[in-house]
Write a protein that binds this DNA or RNA. Sequence first.
RNA 1: CGGGGUGUGGCGCAGUUGGUAGCGUACUACGUUCGGGACGUAGGGGCCGGAAGUUCGAGUCUUCUCACCCCGACCA
Length: 491
Amino acid sequence: MAKFLTNRDENYAQWYNDLVIKADLAENSAVRGCMVIKPYGYAIWEKIQAELDKMFKATGHVNAYFPIFIPKSFFSKEAKHVEGFAKECAIVTHYRLKKDENGGGIIVDPSAKLEEELIIRPTSETIIWNSYKNWIHSYRDLPILINQWCNVVRWEMRTRLFLRTSEFLWQEGHTAHATREEAIEETEKMINVYSEFAQNFMALPVIKGYKSETERFAGAIDTYAIEAIMQDGKALQAGTSHFLGQNFAKAFDVQFTDKNGKLDYVWATSWGLSTRMIGALIMAHSDNKGLVLPPRLAPIQVIIVPIFKNAEQLARISETVNKIKPDLQAKGISVKYDDRDNNTPGWKYADYELKGVPVRLAIGPRDIEQGTVEVARRDTLEKTSIPVNNITDHILTLLDDIQKNIYVKAAEFKKANTFYVDKWDEFVNILDNQGGFIMAHWDGTAETEEKIKNETKATIRCIPFESPEEDGKCIYSGKPSKRRVLFARSY
RNA sequence: CGGGGUGUGGCGCAGUUGGUAGCGUACUACGUUCGGGACGUAGGGGCCGGAAGUUCGAGUCUUCUCACCCCGACCA
């Protein structure tokens, strides 16, 4: 058994941390709160980027790049926005170092103080809308549908690999529209893109919904989010899409002339998804043997392990591998052949299981004799012997099966851990003892939301789009409510 | 910023009443192994986070300091 991993059921947080390190996804860096994303972890991010980027392009978006530095004055133009981010900003105040006259070291040159400090972007609405001001004059300039892939910095007090780091990678879309309706449509479109991505690629079932006013993005009129459940019953916000109204247009004075020659402020949206998704991927599917990656995001989909006693045997096995590997690759499957002789097959099995490679092929002398390949799937750990001549087709369907199975498993987990609760005792009891998603009535006030948060650490994750209207009473205050909202403790 | 903890070969750890550093693992070489994390033999690698002090002598005692981790408040 996984003697190198902390047991998931004994210490979930430690299991997660161990897994990130042992699977070689990332490590802590010399800079507090910042991680080094190692090649295997970055390869997952590249997969996420590639798929999302395709989806963005397919919905009419283009990529661009804006500066990492934002003049301090830009930030204060939108009141709620600055309020929301002020407490976690990194600020550049100088642009030069010099030798310390008193010691051997190097100090900040006091004479190189910036006229205006620069904020390292925690998000780019301000710098982008400052540009949009110059780009937009007429309704003919709209819509602008731009995305950028970049890093952002939010000076968090406590950090965890992938889930919350001071610097993280993400994409942020920033769109500008002529009408309120169009902007809302865009906001909805993008939360749907995220939701489809989560379900189809990450094998992660999510709940789409509105954020309550207190949980809303700083500066947004409305925030839509997708929320996923992790194996410890906690919720993880996996992506957000914001309807910004005319807030940023007004803050940056971005007006356009409409078809009737009338001047109006531009309508905006923004939406983002970050490297945090890798954390979600890990926490949603993995087990005590290590990662379980959905095939569609796995950097290596098929690993081939030869079993050999000597060079001649390896040569014969390699002959077979050299036939099947190109076939698999021709079908777009990423395959690695691990013919290193410094580890035993057993060691390699354990290692690739730790790394979550969906399918493992083992080929030994016995297989060569019988014309078979041993196929092992990571999700169920089942092993079967398959004739070598139809291995490609078998693996193609197997990868699909695994993708589906991981999704179904996660969906069943979500269902089994979603509770419809009407009594406060039960609400508290579930949170304390098993966790999970709780669908309960809420009176719609920030006061009640705050009280529930203080007493249980549970927050309103979202007001689900698909929550049907039903008469009920607030779980906390007993006041009337029209629909259930999603409560959970969260990351 | 509050509470707790840890700093000793790359990693994980031990180190007794103070006596001049050891184990596991990883690494290197050779040999035997190889169908679920192999084994043997031989090697290389550490001024014990930093500073000051006590002492004939400090990984160990004292004081100060730095860093990191975990739990809370803040957050994608």
